[in-house]
Design a protein around this nucleic acid. Structure first.
Lengths: 186, 186
DNA sequence: ATTACTGTACCGTCCGGACGGTAATGTCAA
DNA sequence: TTGACATTACCGTCCGGACGGTACAGTAAT
């Protein structure tokens, strides 16, 4: 609740450190000691910011959800004139080269590793998203296809299994837009 | 290398126990002690069958891959007359109520938790699958969409995030078949 | 005086793995 | 057919180390 400088807050540094460590040593092996050292503070300092490992991981999930939603809403606003704004925003969000959620991927894996129920908030968010998508689209089936494809691309990014090339991603993106009967912008 | 009786082998029991424990205590918290106890043998006995935790987890991944591939090939054979046999088989495999891979889900999470690189064989398999799918389909874009949607459904099943209802799953399935220009069977 | 830490010292627990048995089941030569 | 040894499939214990968390005294800035 301060930080006037351009420096990152301790909380932020800790979250970043936990994510990085998860990628380096495996999601199941992030220890408080290691996270603290990586974030450049003492274990006491870490425990001051997050009173338990559970809280730390919850924060990881909350941060991911918040940043994902912010980015999505911004993109949706860009297409506010279009009836399929949400679907379009989703597609853009996941098919760009550096999606907002990608840096958080290994942190999410750490949460799953610790206890899959940490993802309950994510489950809720996704279902809401799907409902909004269905409501905003005339066609339920194509809304579902878009949702599933987005989920597929996201999961591949989560596991680092993103074997699709840029051209392939572009092809799906284009086809998906025709599926939604969105005219190409040129 | 024996087992004439109808009983499960120790290896099998261990694999089942590890998967069940992963679901119960969280993928990061399966210990050799607990797995052994659950499988009804001692830790020494477990280590006899799998000389290290790493080997145990590798076996979990191999088993998943093998059973998935078996099931897929069987379904593919059922549609051998159709040019999109592979795509159809994939869709059927993931959209049925109890997919073969679902019971293995928490075991896969345990593998990811321990070290995401355990999934390297899975990555390879998926890329091959995608290539076969593209080759067998005239249209690259729709092959990609099917692949991504399948991957999305699979990841939802993996995380227990499978919020889709049966009717929704059926709707996507049907739409996907028209995408592939497969005639409805009645 | 409060906030935001640092640093050290601990505690109890758990964990992977090594290891030394051992009972049952072959195998095979004398 | 019997004794000698090998192999298989396991048991139970032990150890060194790591981990989450606690406690607490100190400190520098506001």
């Amino acid at each position: 609740m301060s930080v006037r400088t351009g420096e990152l807050s301790s909380r932020e540094r800790i979250l970043i450190a936990a994510t990085a460590l998860s990628k380096e040593v495996g999601p199941a092996h992030i220890s408080l000691d290691a996270v603290a050292a990586r974030a450049g503070l003492s274990k006491g300092g870490l425990l001051y910011n997050f009173p338990s490992k559970k809280r730390l991981i919850e924060a990881l999930v909350e941060r991911h959800l918040r940043e994902f939603d912010d980015a999505l809403r911004k993109l949706e606003a860009d297409h506010s004139e279009c009836p399929n704004a949400l679907a379009l925003a989703l597609l853009e969000l996941v098919s760009c080269e550096e999606p907002v959620h990608k840096p958080h991927a290994s942190g999410m894996l750490a949460a799953i590793a610790e206890d899959p129920s940490f993802l309950d908030p994510v489950r809720g968010y996704r279902r809401d998203l799907l409902d909004r998508l269905i409501a905003s689209s005339g066609d339920v089936a194509s809304a579902l296809i878009v949702f599933l494809a987005v989920e597929g691309l996201r999961s591949m990014q989560l596991f680092g299994t993103d074997t699709l090339g840029a051209s392939e991603r572009a092809a799906v993106f284009a086809r998906m837009k025709t599926l939604l009967r969105v005219p190409e912008p040129a």
